[in-house]
Design a protein around this nucleic acid. Structure first.
Length: 346
DNA sequence: AACCCGGGGAG
DNA sequence: CTCCCAGGGTT
């Protein structure tokens, strides 16, 4: 039996029922694929439901404000996905009369759609023979064929893409693509897969040679850096506080936050007091500072750990541009801020 | 080719 | 703790 036949047979028996498997409408497939980038199904599923309900068509999505889209995305991470999603929706509506591109090459022109996503949509919606290569595919192929090329190298990317393109069932690329990924997610799991029930256990290189744990090979990432964040939660007499929109290129672009003082190390009450005295809003004014969280809240990202303190600053004057505390929860914020807002009783 | 971008869950 | 996730954009 061929690799493809064994795989798709396994898939026909073991696949999960998921909402985006009930359709080939490119809008829904695209939505699901963007949401599922670097995101597990369990985490992404509720967001998919929310987006489909709130924006039932690409026209609804295109018509929304970016902040609304970011708000719905809040907590999923990699917020450039949400910004690109919105931009691509506007592009499809404004330039393509609301009709999605119908092939790999044109799908690539959408913001946020790269090789993987274009291949997924082209194969699932239009039966184009375009092999997908994601984390699951890397794992399945590296183990089955015994490939030690690092998957996060350009050489590895090419090698696995070529191999997947050779293996794909040209008669049913949609099923093949989804089958490899589902197989990687359910059977050929990253850790301690049950190879005794695997349909490939008589031909898999890694199983035969007892090297499941060594594959796939990945180049180690650099060590995580530490950052120290001090958020300033102002409280004014008229029940307002200050939120700023993050500008520029970095993390959490276009999301909102409390005014931030970044420091080399965790600040003491005294050190923060000194910093505050240099701020224009507080110069020569009365204010009272208290630390909300005694222990630093550590927010862990892939490459940095954010040691965070929230400082409550009560002032006896009103601040221009401040917003009512009752509206705070309407703004899209990083989950680090969102958790604080939820716990803090304004 | 290297680096940046979140957050959650499994083991 | 460490590792992984149905990746893409920018430089």
């Amino acid at each position: 039996m061929s690799f493809s036949k064994t795989l798709t047979h396994w898939y026909s028996i073991n696949k999960r029922q998921l909402p985006w498997r009930q359709t080939t409408n490119p809008y829904y497939i695209w939505l699901s694929e963007i949401i599922l980038q670097q995101t597990q199904i369990k985490q992404g599923l509720p967001y998919y439901e929310d987006f489909v309900t709130t924006f039932p068509t690409v026209f609804h999505l295109a018509k929304a404000n970016e902040a609304e889209v970011l708000k719905l995305w809040q907590g999923l991470g990699y917020y450039s996905r949400a910004r690109n999603l919105h931009a691509a929706a506007k592009y499809v509506v404004d330039e393509l009369q609301g009709v999605f591109p119908t092939n790999y090459k044109d799908l690539l022109k959408l913001k946020g759609v790269g090789d993987y996503t274009a291949s997924a949509i082209a194969s699932i919606c239009y039966n184009e023979v375009a092999a997908v290569v994601d984390g699951n595919v890397y794992r399945v192929l590296s183990r089955y064929f015994g490939i030690y090329t690092p998957i996060n190298s350009s050489k590895g990317a090419k090698e696995f893409k070529t191999l997947a393109q050779e293996l794909i069932d040209v008669k049913d690329p949609a099923t093949f693509n989804q089958a490899v990924m589902e197989f990687g997610a359910i059977q050929c799991k990253p850790k301690s897969p049950d190879c005794t029930i695997c349909p490939f256990n008589n031909s898999c290189y890694a199983y035969s040679n007892a090297v499941i744990g060594e594959l796939p090979v990945k180049i180690k990432a650099a060590k995580v850096s530490k950052k120290y964040f001090n958020f300033l939660v102002f409280l004014t007499p008229n029940q307002t506080t200050v939120l700023e929109q993050r500008q520029g290129k970095g993390i959490w672009q276009n999301l909102y936050q409390f005014p931030l003082i970044e420091s080399e190390k965790g600040l003491t009450h005294r050190q923060l007091q000194k910093e505050l005295e240099t701020l224009d809003v507080l110069k020569g004014k009365n204010f009272e500072v208290s630390l909300y969280n005694k222990d630093e809240i550590v927010h862990k990202l892939s490459h940095q750990h954010l040691y965070t303190q929230f400082w409550i600053i009560e002032v006896d004057f009103n601040i221009e541009g401040a917003i009512s505390v009752s509206e705070v929860e309407d703004f899209p914020v990083p989950i680090l801020i969102g958790n604080f807002i939820e716990n803090f009783n304004f």
